[in-house]
Each structure stands twice: as C-alpha cells, then as structure tokens.
Computed example of a mutant assay.
Amino acid sequence: MDRSRISKPLVLLLFFPLLALAQYTDVINSNRPGRAVSAYAVGRNVIQAEVGLVYEQQDDATLNSDSNIFGTDISLRYGLLFETLEIKYEGSFINQNITYTDLGTDETRTDFSRNRLGLKFLVFDPFKNPENNKPNLYSWRANNVFQLKNLIPAVSVYAGATFNLGDNPFYVGDPIASPRAAIATQSRLSPRFVLISNIAYDRIGTDFPEWSYAVSLSHSFRDPKWSIFVENQGIKSDRYSDMLLRTGVAYLISPNFQADFHLGSGFKNTPSRIFAVLGFSYRLDLHKDKLVAIEDQKGGVNGKIKKNASKKKPKKGRKKKKDKIDF
C-alpha cells in the first residue's frame, strides 16, 4: 500500500480541527499586552481574567505640573451562550498624585479612569469554512508566507456602556452611564504575524464624546511561547486627545496562563506620558466541544458533502448479458 495515500489525509485531518474551531483555542486567547481587542471570543463557558499593574509619569507643560500614577487594569471575559459571543468587563482603577510646581501644592485623585461593560459578537470569520482555508499539503512555503487572502479579517461588533460612579475627578459632569460601540478586526497575515485593529465611539451623548482607534501587530517566535507586539492608539475628544505607542513581550507559561510586560509613551506634552505595565492572563477552561454527526451537519464537514452522500447509487447502463451456453 502507498504510504503517501495515508499520510496526506491524516495531515489534513489534523489541521481541520484548528480551522473549524477558530473561536476556541487550545491555549489562552488574551487581549494583553496592549489595549487592542481581538475579534474572537474566548469560547463558550470559558472564564478569563486579564490583569495589569501600571506605573505612569505625566508632566503637563500648560499647567506646569508633575504627577505619578499607580493603578490596576482588569478585564473579565466570559464566553456566553455560544462560541461567537462574550460578555466583557474592563476597568482601570488608578491613584494619581499631582504636584503643581508654580503653586507649590499637591493634589490626589483616586477613581476609575476606565469602567465599562459590554457584549462582543463575531459577525464574520474567514476561517469558518475549512474548505477555503485548508493547508497546502505539497508546499511548506504556501502555508507560511503572506498571501492576499490573509488580509481578509475576522470582524466583531461591540455594544455596551461606560459607567461613572459617584464624583469621579477624571470625568466631572458625566452621567452615570453612557453608551459605547466598537468594531474589532483581526487578520492572520502569516502563521507568526497577526494584525488587529479597533475603532470605538465612547461616552455617546455626553458633553465629551470620545473617538478612539488601536492598531496592533503581533509576532510569535520559533519558540511559540514568546511573542512581541507593537501598537498605536489614537484618542480624540474635547477633554483629551493624544497618540500613544506601545511595545512589549508576552510569555506563555502554560496553556491557561500568560505573563506580559510592555512600555509606552504619548506624543504630546499636555500632558506627556511614559508608562510601564506588568500583567498576566489566566483562564478557567470549562469549554466542551459540541459534537454533531456528519449527516446532520449543514453541507457536511467541508461544505460540499451532502447528506447521505456516502450512499452510492447504482450506475445506470446496460446490464451485462450472461453468456449463453449451448449443449
């Protein structure tokens, strides 16, 4: 028997689960480091926490002030109802100590600089149909270099609200809750490069609505436990506007635990910003695959196999005549 006839289908079967389960992955799918958000959900029944410890220095040339900020970033994610939906809480609680050089006075501000809750739903996934994305069994290069089709992104939409509880010194006059909407895209440029982009409209209906974007490019090394990223974020509001640049590294300690570190800065001096963040992500994996019989799947496994297609129909044609034997 020809071994190549066996090995090729075997390799194909090994790749198919990775393509079919684009939402849930065997290793943790974290939005850290950085602020750009993945288009994919964590997976049904997965509970995930992403935490960061923040130190930041701000100097404001207009107010002639210096400040130090210590804080915590936290994101809680849960795969709700089905694979493409997740509910997510994001919060940043900070303590800012400000010194006004001209006045010789100090001020302390403590509250949430970010406090929001919402739902994210995947509306388009280019890897949903394995038939269009199965690997090339004859070319390693074809599977590992950039192709134009890799630019087609997965797309998710987000709807939620930003909350302002009590007398928040960072958002004076804002209502208790204001709507927030966002779109996230994610493209797998190659097996080692992933491009993520976000655009969001926050604090809708308030006196200071806010537009923002984030573009992040990640690269994994030959040792897949290590990865690096670079990210650009822009914020536009009458209250605060700036462009931020971040870069850092992440390390996969175990399939459910990731550590990360990144540095960043702004481009303005009102205020100037330099910050460092040390973080980790952990998930409680309660995910279970839903098994569906091939004959009950829509279009079959690869989108082409029809129901009961395995039942061969008899070929039409003339019946073979039996030889007549004369005695």
Rank of each mutant, 00 (worst) to 15 (best):
S241C: 10
R239Q: 09
R246L: 01
N198I: 03
Q186P: 05
S67Y: 03
T162D: 09
I199R: 01
N31V: 06
R44M: 07
S310E: 09
P179M: 02
T247G: 14
L14A: 14
V42D: 00
Y282H: 08
Q258E: 06
Y282T: 01
V123E: 04
R203K: 15
F93R: 08
S218M: 01
L81R: 11
T101R: 10
P314A: 13
L14W: 14
V292G: 05
N129P: 05
R318V: 14
N136I: 10
H287K: 13
E231Y: 04
L13R: 07
D223C: 03
N64Q: 07
L284R: 13
K268E: 11
W211P: 15
S212D: 08
T99C: 08
T108Q: 06
L148W: 11
E83Y: 09
Y240Q: 04
S227Q: 01
F193R: 07
K236F: 15
V301Y: 10
K288M: 06
R180A: 06
D59P: 05
T72D: 03
K128M: 11
T99H: 08
P126T: 04
T206R: 12
H262K: 04
I253H: 02
E90H: 12
A20Q: 15
D2G: 06
N302W: 15
N136F: 13
T101M: 01
F170L: 05
T270N: 15
A250K: 10
L263M: 10
S7A: 13
R114M: 14
T72P: 02
S156N: 05
N144G: 07
V123M: 10
V292N: 01
G34M: 06
S38Q: 03
G303D: 07
K134E: 09
F170Q: 02
I199L: 08
L284K: 11
G248L: 09
I253A: 12
Y171H: 09
P175G: 06
G266Q: 07
R77E: 02
Q147P: 01
F193W: 13
R116M: 13
Q186K: 11
F261S: 01
I47V: 10
T270E: 14
L278Q: 00
I74D: 02
K290T: 08
L63D: 05
F275N: 06
G264Y: 02
K312P: 10
S241E: 12
S237Y: 03
L165M: 06
F121M: 14
V301D: 08
N97V: 00
K120H: 12
L63Q: 02
L189F: 01
Y171P: 00
Y240P: 02
I152K: 13
R246G: 02
T62G: 09
N68L: 04
I196Y: 05
N97W: 12
R283C: 02
A142L: 03
G205R: 04
I28Y: 00
R5E: 02
I183S: 05
V157M: 13
D73C: 04
I305A: 15
M243D: 14
S187T: 01
A41F: 04
S281N: 07
D326Y: 12
D66V: 00
L85E: 00
D167M: 11
K321G: 12
N45P: 07
S241L: 12
S7D: 11
S113P: 03
I6V: 14
L80Y: 03
Y100R: 09
D289G: 05
